[in-house]
């Protein structure tokens, strides 16, 4: 459908104005709380690896691995979707949310088989993030290189 007619515009504006608004303050607080908790947990894991004698840079890898495992585990146990419903961006943005976005479709589409199900659809949600994340990283890298040349 192309442009909306005047009647459609009027209705859409009227209906949108009457729509219940998302509870912004509650959502922001929930995101802050849960996102903060996930990051604090990540920091604790990082500190643990550092206490084993790694430096901060070396400890980053295993910390990410632990957090991904945790996100994947909670997705498999059917808990992460509930956390997400409550916390919104607070549990989407951290790396645990990234794990959730890959494990959830993998679980979901297992019934269509390992090739056309899991294989083809695992990156349904994460795919766009990867594509545009990598593109952005590449562009930023290019600018950095040009500026420092």
């Amino acid at each position: 459908m192309g442009k909306l007619t005047r009647e459609q515009e009027v209705y859409k504006r009227w209906a949108n104005a009457r729509k219940p608004k998302p509870p912004l303050l509650r959502n922001v607080l929930a995101a802050f709380l849960v996102g903060g908790l996930i990051c604090t947990l990540g920091q604790a894991v990082l500190n643990y690896f550092i206490s084993l004698g790694m430096n901060a840079k070396e400890a980053g890898g295993p910390t990410a691995a632990v957090m991904i495992l945790l996100g994947a585990l909670l997705t498999g146990l059917g808990v992460y979707d509930r956390i997400g419903r409550f916390a919104g961006a607070g549990s989407v943005i951290p790396i645990t949310g990234f794990a959730n976005s890959i494990v959830a479709p993998a679980l979901e589409f297992k019934r269509e088989g390992y090739v056309m199900g899991v294989g083809a659809r695992m990156f349904n949600i994460a795919g766009p993030v990867l594509v545009y994340g990598m593109t952005t990283a590449w562009l930023v890298g290019l600018f950095y290189w040009l500026i420092h040349k």
Partner: peptide
């Protein structure tokens, strides 16, 4: 849900509508 929207285990927040 899996046909029209997201995988059921995906942690997303739904709008009040």
């Amino acid at each position: 849900e899996r046909q029209f929207r997201y995988p059921t285990e995906l942690g997303v927040q739904k709008p009040p509508t």
